[in-house]
Design a protein around this nucleic acid. Structure first.
Length: 597
DNA sequence: AGCGCGGGCGCG
DNA sequence: AAAGCGCGCCCGCGCT
C-alpha cells in the first residue's frame, strides 16, 4: 500500500460532480472525512466533505447549495460501508451542516480500530498512516496554521477552493481507506469484541452529547454570585490584615512564617506545600481564610461559572464524552489526556465526572443539574464494581462467597477476616477493610495503605496478612498478572494484560508492572459500564441517557413512562451472568442530580 | 498574549 | 524490592 499515483479532485463543476457520483456507485466501501468550521460538536458544522478510496478522492464544498444537495443525495443513495477517522465527530459535523448523518450499522472508525490494536501511541491519522500505510504520509502535513495566521483565515473562513486546504482534506480519506485495509484484519484477529463495543458505545455517547444536560441557570447564577462575594471579602481581608494576595501560596507561606508558623510538608518538586491538609492543620485566621477562599474559588471557577458559560446557548451543557481518547494531546505527554490507559471514558467541556459529591458545597453544586420538564432524574450506579472485578479475576472462592451471600460485602469480609460472626456495619474496622480492598486494587504499599486508613503501619501490615490468608487467590492472581506481563515483556517487548471480556489490551509503562493489576480491574469495570450502556440503548433507553460517570449512568426519564423505564434500567444494571459474582446496582431518583432528601 | 510547569483539587 | 491507579481543569508564575 502506498500513495503512489493517487489523485484528488475538487467538485466545482457539473462534470466533476457527475464523475464523483459514478465513481461512488462502483464502490462497496468509501472513506469519508469533513473539514469543519471548528471543533465543537455543538456549534460547528462541516464546510467540506471528502470521499475517497485507496487511489482517489473528491472534496465537495457544501457551502455551495448545489453541492450540499449533491452530498445529501450521495449519502442517501450509497448502500456500502463508510469508514472515517473519528467517526462520531464527522457524523456530528454532517448532521449540523446537512441534517443527515452516517448510518450506524454501516459505518466504521479507523481511530477506534487503531486504539484497539495499540492502546499506546498517537491516534492521529497522519501518525498512524505514516506507520501503517506509507512513511511519506508525514510529508503531506496539512499544516495550514502559518498561512492561516498570515491571511487572517480561520477554519470557518479559509477559502474552500484554496488548493492545499481541499487537497489535503481529500488526501485524508485516501489515508483513512488504506489505513482501514491494514487495521481491519488486525482487529478481527486480535480483539473484534473490543472494537465492536467501542464502536457501539461511541454512537450512544454521541447522542448523549447532543442531548446535553439541563442547567438551572438562575439557581446556578445565584450560587455563583454568593460564593464570588465571599471570595472578594476574603481577599480584601487577607490583603488588609497581612498584605498578601490570598491566591499566592508563596506569599501566604511567607506571611504565616512571619507569624511564627513552621512548614514541614514538601511538594513533589521540593517546595513548601500549602495544600488543604497543611492549611487545615494551621490554627490561624489567615490560614483558615485562605483555605475558605480557595474552596470557594474552586467551586466558582471549575464548576459554576463553566456551567453558566457553557449553557448560554440552549440552557444545557453538552459535555464531551471521550470514549477512548480526547481530541487533545497524547496521553503520554505531560498534561496529556484521554481514556487510553484503561478504557474508561473521560469527560470534558465541562468535565461532568468530577462534580463534587462529598464536600460541604457538593449538594448545592449538583443541584445545578436538573431533569427535563416533566421528567425525573435517575442515577444508576454499580455497587463495588472493581471489588467484584477482583473477585472475578482472582476467582477466590471465599471472596466470591462474600458477594453471593446476603448483606453488606465489607461486613461479610469483616466476619471472615476478624473471625467475628457478629461484625456489624457500624464496626469501625469496616473502613479499614474498605481501604485495604482499594489498596489491593490500586497496588498500594503498606505505608500508603496505613496513611489512607489512618492506622499504624504494623496494623496495616497485619491486616494485609490476614486478608491474603483469608482470600489467597487474590495475591496469587496479582503475582500471576505480573509474571505474565514479565513473560510478555521478554517475548514481545511489551508488558501487557488482556481483558477476559473483550480481549482488550492494557499496557504498562516500563518498570511499573504492578500497575497492570489496577489496569485490569479498572479496565474491566470500564468495559462493564460500556457494555451496559450499549445494552441499555438496545433496550430502548438511549433517548433518556444523560451521561456516564465510570460506574454510574444518569438518565432523565419522563414521569408518565417512569415505572416501565425504571424496571428496564434495573434489568440492565443488575446482572448475574457476566461475572462469577453478581453485578448489582443502586438507584437514586430525584428532580435533579443532587441526592434527594 | 500565549505557553509550559508546578501546585492543587474535584471525581471514580 | 517496591509500588496508590485513572482522569480534567484552574491558578500563579516565569518564560518567550
Amino acid at each position: 500500500m502506498s500513495l503512489d499515483g493517487v489523485r484528488v479532485h475538487l467538485v466545482d463543476d457539473v462534470e466533476t460532480a457527475y464523475e464523483c457520483k459514478r465513481w461512488l456507485s462502483t464502490l462497496d466501501r468509501v472513506a469519508i472525512d469533513t473539514e469543519s468550521t471548528g471543533l465543537s460538536k455543538d456549534t460547528d458544522r462541516a464546510r467540506l466533505v471528502q470521499l475517497g478510496d485507496a487511489r482517489q478522492a473528491y472534496a465537495i464544498p457544501i457551502e455551495h447549495p448545489g453541492w450540499s444537495a449533491l452530498v445529501v443525495e450521495l449519502l442517501t443513495r450509497f448502500e456500502g460501508d463508510y469508514v472515517a477517522h473519528n467517526l462520531v465527530f464527522d457524523d456530528a459535523m454532517l448532521r449540523n451542516a446537512l441534517g443527515v448523518g452516517l448510518p450506524e450499522t454501516r459505518s466504521h472508525d479507523t481511530r477506534l480500530k487503531a486504539h484497539v490494536i495499540e492502546s499506546t501511541g498517537s491516534l492521529a491519522l497522519k501518525s498512524l498512516a505514516k506507520r501503517h500505510v506509507d512513511p511519506r504520509a508525514a510529508m503531506f502535513q496539512d499544516d495550514l496554521s502559518d498561512v492561516m495566521t498570515k491571511s487572517g483565515w480561520t477554519w470557518a473562513t479559509i477559502p474552500l477552493d484554496y488548493e492545499p486546504y481541499w487537497s489535503y482534506g481529500a488526501l485524508d480519506t485516501i489515508l483513512t481507506y488504506q489505513l482501514d485495509d491494514v487495521l481491519d484484519p488486525l482487529v478481527q484477529r486480535e480483539a473484534p469484541a473490543s472494537y465492536d463495543l467501542e464502536l457501539a458505545v461511541a454512537w450512544v455517547c454521541e447522542r448523549m452529547e447532543r442531548r446535553g444536560v439541563l442547567v438551572d441557570r438562575e439557581y446556578t447564577r445565584a450560587f455563583a454570585d454568593e460564593l464570588s462575594e465571599y471570595m472578594e471579602q476574603a481577599e480584601a481581608w487577607c490583603h488588609a490584615q497581612y498584605g498578601v494576595y490570598a491566591g499566592s501560596n508563596v506569599k501566604v507561606i511567607e506571611a504565616l512564617q512571619a507569624e511564627g508558623i513552621e512548614f514541614t510538608q514538601y511538594t513533589e518538586a521540593g517546595r513548601l506545600s500549602l495544600d488543604k491538609h497543611v492549611l487545615g492543620a494551621i490554627d490561624h485566621p489567615l490560614a483558615q481564610t485562605v483555605l475558605g477562599r480557595r474552596q470557594a474559588q474552586k467551586m466558582v471557577t471549575t464548576y459554576l461559572q463553566n456551567y453558566l458559560d457553557m449553557s448560554e446557548r440552549d440552557g444545557r451543557i453538552h459535555p464531551s464524552i471521550n470514549t477512548v481518547g480526547g481530541m487533545g494531546k497524547s496521553p503520554f505527554e505531560p498534561g496529556g489526556s484521554s481514556g487510553v490507559r484503561t478504557g474508561r471514558m473521560s469527560s470534558s467541556n465541562p468535565n461532568i465526572q468530577n462534580v463534587p459529591v462529598r464536600g460541604k458545597a457538593s449538594t448545592k453544586i449538583r443541584r445545578c443539574f436538573v431533569a427535563d420538564p416533566g421528567h425525573s432524574w435517575v442515577k444508576a450506579d454499580f455497587s463495588q464494581i472493581e471489588m467484584r472485578a477482583m473477585a472475578h479475576m482472582s476467582n477466590d472462592e471465599r471472596m466470591i462467597e462474600a458477594f453471593r451471600s446476603e448483606g453488606d460485602f465489607f461486613v461479610n469480609l469483616g466476619r471472615d477476616i476478624f473471625a467475628d460472626p457478629n461484625f456489624k456495619k457500624s464496626d469501625p474496622r469496616r473502613q479499614l477493610i474498605k481501604n485495604g480492598g482499594y489498596a489491593k486494587i490500586y497496588g498500594a504499599g503498606i505505608p500508603k495503605f496505613a496513611a489512607t486508613a489512618g492506622v499504624p503501619e504494623n496494623e496495616a501490615y497485619e491486616f494485609m496478612q490476614r486478608f491474603d490468608a483469608m482470600y489467597p487467590a487474590v495475591p496469587r492472581w496479582i503475582r500471576q498478572v505480573e509474571r505474565d506481563a514479565l513473560a510478555r515483556l521478554n517475548d514481545e517487548g511489551e508488558a501487557y494484560v488482556r481483558s477476559p471480556l473483550t480481549n482488550r489490551k492494557h499496557v504498562a509503562d516500563a518498570g511499573k508492572l504492578y500497575t497492570l493489576v489496577n489496569y485490569d480491574l479498572q479496565g474491566m469495570a470500564g468495559e462493564i459500564l460500556k457494555m451496559k450502556i450499549v445494552e441499555a440503548d438496545q433496550a430502548g433507553l438511549g433517548e433518556f441517557m444523560l451521561f456516564p460517570v465510570h460506574d454510574e449512568q444518569n438518565y432523565s426519564v419522563p414521569n408518565e413512562q417512569f415505572d416501565d423505564v425504571l424496571v428496564t434500567i434495573k434489568d440492565v444494571m443488575n446482572d448475574d451472568k457476566l461475572l462469577n459474582v453478581p453485578i448489582t446496582s443502586s438507584i437514586d431518583v430525584g428532580p435533579g442530580w443532587a441526592a434527594s432528601e
